[in-house]
Simulated scan of single mutants.
Amino acid sequence: MRGKILQLIAKNSKLTPEEIAKEINADPQQVAKEIKLMEENRVICGYNTLINYDNTDRELVTALIEVKVTPQRGDGYDKIAERIYRFDEVKAVYLMSGGFDLTVILEKSSLKEIALFVSDKLATIDSVTSTATHFVLKKYKDHGIVIERGDKKDRRMIISP
């Protein structure tokens, strides 16, 4: 039951226990109890709303920052990651395999604000040896949700010889 509940609320966190119970043929009170238990055990860590800021008047720039670090003795990457994720502007931090150690995801209202974060906060951490910043140009799908459908009409003017 737990796996089915997680699948459903991962797609739509607004589902009520009654709606989930109906979908998986279970008792609504048992579903509510299971959700509460998963929240207490940090299986469910929170609920988010996915917003397409391109359809609002708010400017938002998303950056993915590759970070190379020197791991700390006894703590590895954990203390460095914690120091980074404590910054309010950081949306996510992931430990990676491959050519760099951490990915930091940041959302700010301008490229300049991201550049200032990288130069003033991130790059000044002792264990950080290098960074590479990538900017998201367009989001097509995020958290399993299609952001912009490809069925928009082509508004270009047709020019024929």
Results as ranks from 00 to 15, higher is better:
103 T>I: 15
15 L>C: 09
12 N>V: 06
62 T>W: 00
30 Q>A: 15
150 G>S: 10
108 K>G: 07
45 C>V: 15
131 T>R: 04
108 K>L: 03
143 H>G: 10
73 R>W: 08
35 I>A: 09
42 R>A: 08
124 T>I: 09
120 D>N: 11
153 K>A: 11
121 K>D: 12
120 D>C: 01
112 K>C: 00
117 F>W: 03
117 F>G: 08
91 K>I: 09
139 K>C: 00
76 G>K: 05
19 E>N: 04
101 D>I: 06
133 T>I: 01
93 V>I: 13
146 V>G: 01
110 S>I: 04
36 K>I: 07
149 R>N: 11
109 S>E: 14
154 D>F: 05
76 G>L: 00
140 Y>G: 13
70 T>N: 12
82 E>Y: 07
137 L>T: 10
27 D>S: 13
139 K>A: 05
91 K>C: 04
147 I>T: 15
125 I>H: 04
101 D>K: 02
76 G>H: 03
58 R>Q: 14
134 H>E: 06
86 R>M: 08
124 T>E: 13
54 D>W: 02
40 E>R: 08
95 L>P: 01
85 Y>H: 12
104 V>G: 07
118 V>P: 06
120 D>K: 11
1 M>A: 10
81 A>F: 02
67 V>N: 01
112 K>D: 13
113 E>M: 05
140 Y>L: 14
157 M>T: 14
80 I>T: 07
134 H>M: 14
118 V>C: 11
65 I>E: 06
53 Y>V: 12
156 R>N: 13
83 R>H: 10
36 K>V: 05
67 V>Q: 02
4 K>C: 01
130 S>T: 12
96 M>S: 09
10 A>R: 10
106 L>R: 04
65 I>D: 05
117 F>A: 02
77 Y>V: 08
42 R>Q: 12
131 T>H: 11
92 A>K: 08
95 L>V: 15
56 T>L: 07
91 K>T: 12
141 K>N: 11
70 T>D: 10
65 I>Y: 03
123 A>W: 03
125 I>P: 03
53 Y>R: 06
4 K>L: 15
108 K>T: 04
59 E>A: 10
104 V>H: 00
22 K>E: 11
72 Q>Y: 01
144 G>Y: 07
104 V>E: 07
77 Y>S: 00
79 K>F: 03
143 H>K: 15
89 E>T: 13
83 R>W: 02
67 V>S: 01
130 S>D: 15
95 L>K: 07
110 S>N: 03
98 G>T: 03
3 G>F: 09
141 K>H: 04
126 D>F: 03
77 Y>W: 03
135 F>P: 05
66 E>P: 00
39 E>T: 13
18 E>R: 08
140 Y>E: 13
73 R>S: 14
5 I>E: 06
138 K>G: 02
70 T>K: 07
34 E>D: 09
151 D>Y: 08
9 I>P: 04
126 D>W: 02
150 G>C: 00
157 M>F: 12
66 E>D: 15
26 A>H: 10
15 L>Y: 06
